[in-house]
Design a binder for these strands. Structure first.
Lengths: 205, 205
DNA sequence: TTATATACATACATTTCTGATTGTATATAA
DNA sequence: TTATATACAATCAGAAATGTATGTATATAA
């Protein structure tokens, strides 16, 4: 083997990330070794160590590829006034999120790793903190959306936007977790759509 | 060192479980070694291997000490008609669960390990399945409680017990997860009580 | 055209963890 | 009272993973 062009090297890098994602899903992050990743990617450990300093480094690269586009979608869907009334936008956001899990394999695998195939200790403790930061942002935008809904008279009487946002945030969080936990029984997966509709109509006037 | 009495051996066994729990919280299950557990328990690896075949074995022993009493509490609190009206019982159940996390260190650590310090692959994939089974039970009992509430005319018009149970189940699930994820910012922990109240009053007539 | 940096593969040294084996003092059963 | 099983400690061999060091062909810059 010899030296490759920059474009080819970038492709190798991406193959390593893809291989890592698959291996993380299958074996969990801890039990995945650099050798596993290399083997799945069809390269040697030398290549992996050339592109990434450590397994943790690969993990973060993988996460960023999914997490960064996600952040855009939150504000875009939740706050854009042209996308229907505020309550519908919240519902749409959640429906789209679950749709993403069903259709986008990369997003699905990455979410699955983050929710149940990695341990939040040491270097990974920070991942949790960052996710919580993202949660705060989403919470703020949910609160804004519920406030708009209240102004527009769409909310039932006596409902506090902040409290509703927290409840929806919690609901949305566990929809994703339960979606993965319930892979065999199909308890959640088939009912997702209706659960979201029920959740929103509970607060619509 | 020499042989100990049966009572002393049982104590050693419990010390090993306690040591494992602490170490799992600190280092995660994967990065915890038998040596770590032994050292924390003040024994050698010989003792750990005498009482348990593997680290996985220790994990399951630890989990059972918390999970088994938990199952009792679900049916007891949710279904016992003498404990107030159905909606209050659901609220009480959730409040008691969060109270447990705040006051019982053993329960708290075990929940923390299960939610964020272990990877659900291979032998541990079954743990997820069992938790889901437990979830199904809880869901059935929540549905029963909401049905009673509807019969008694406590529920708002047009609310389906099954749908409400799913929403509450999801809410309850993420309360626990977020409680741990939000350790620093205190976003969730301080608002837990109110979130539960808001969740229930959303469906009370 | 040539020197150099690049993109890996290969080989090696070291650490770490496990599981099995062996040793042993003593509780307990007979 | 004595034989045996128990409850560990201590030792050892082997596998596995990491990180580094080295080799090398070639893309690329000069």
């Amino acid at each position: 083997m010899a030296r490759k062009t920059k474009a080819e090297a970038q492709l190798t890098r991406q193959q390593i990330i893809d291989a890592a994602r698959q291996t993380f899903v299958k074996r969990g992050v801890s039990r995945t070794t650099m050798e596993h990743i290399a083997e799945t990617a069809g390269v040697t450990r030398g290549a992996v160590y050339w592109h990434f300093a450590s397994k943790t480094d690969v993990f973060f690269a993988m996460r960023d590829q999914v997490a960064l586009p996600l952040l855009d979608r939150i504000s875009h869907t939740l706050l854009d006034e042209e996308r229907g009334d505020p309550l519908s936008r919240i519902e749409t956001y959640m429906q789209e999120t679950m749709e993403l899990l069903a259709t986008d394999a990369v997003a699905r695998q990455t979410y699955e790793i983050i929710t149940s195939k990695c341990e939040y200790v040491y270097e990974f403790a920070g991942v949790r903190a960052q996710m919580m930061q993202c949660g705060h942002d989403m919470l703020a935008k949910l609160t804004a959306a519920y406030s708009r809904a209240k102004d527009k008279g769409l909310l039932r009487q006596g409902l506090e936007p902040a409290a509703m946002a927290l409840d929806t945030f919690a609901f949305s969080f566990s929809l994703i977790h339960l979606w993965f936990a319930d892979s065999e029984k199909k308890l959640i997966r088939t009912k997702c759509h209706d659960m979201i509709k029920a959740h929103i109509s509970l607060r619509r006037l």
